[in-house]
């Protein structure tokens, strides 16, 4: 397993949208390295013939009927918003389109 560089932590922090200080970057690079090294030993037993489990209990086809329920009141919807205008959430300018 490769070690985690400071640059790698910075890249991942960008993906995770978290501003990190220079000190945090230094510290996390070291800590993550130790953690990843210690958890990586799971690959010893995670061989190709073992199926993955993503749910603790095997269940399928849990569906909901297509029956509408009333919306949350718009006042409740916007009550927690840092900013709102005309019934909508006000957010800073978006520079990148997806």
């Amino acid at each position: 397993m490769s070690t985690i560089s400071r640059d790698e932590v910075a890249r991942v922090a960008g993906l995770a949208r978290i501003d990190l200080t220079s000190d945090e970057l230094d510290r996390l690079a070291g800590e993550l390295d130790v953690i990843v090294q210690s958890v990586a030993r799971i690959s010893e037993v995670a061989t190709a013939d073992v199926p993955a489990t993503s749910h603790p209990l095997p269940m399928f086809n849990v569906f909901r009927a297509d029956v509408p329920e009333p919306s949350l009141p718009v006042a409740d919807v916007l009550a927690g918003a840092p900013a709102s205008e005309e019934g909508r959430f006000m957010v800073p300018q978006i520079l990148e389109e997806d």
Binding site: V67, P68, V74, R88
Partner: peptide, 22 residues
């Protein structure tokens, strides 16, 4: 559909903003 993919909020075209949400 009458409701959304993952919740029972109504699907309404042209509703006032944020009035068809859960």
């Amino acid at each position: 559909t009458k409701t959304k993919m993952f919740d029972s909020a109504p699907q309404v075209f042209g509703a006032e903003p944020n009035t068809a949400v859960s």
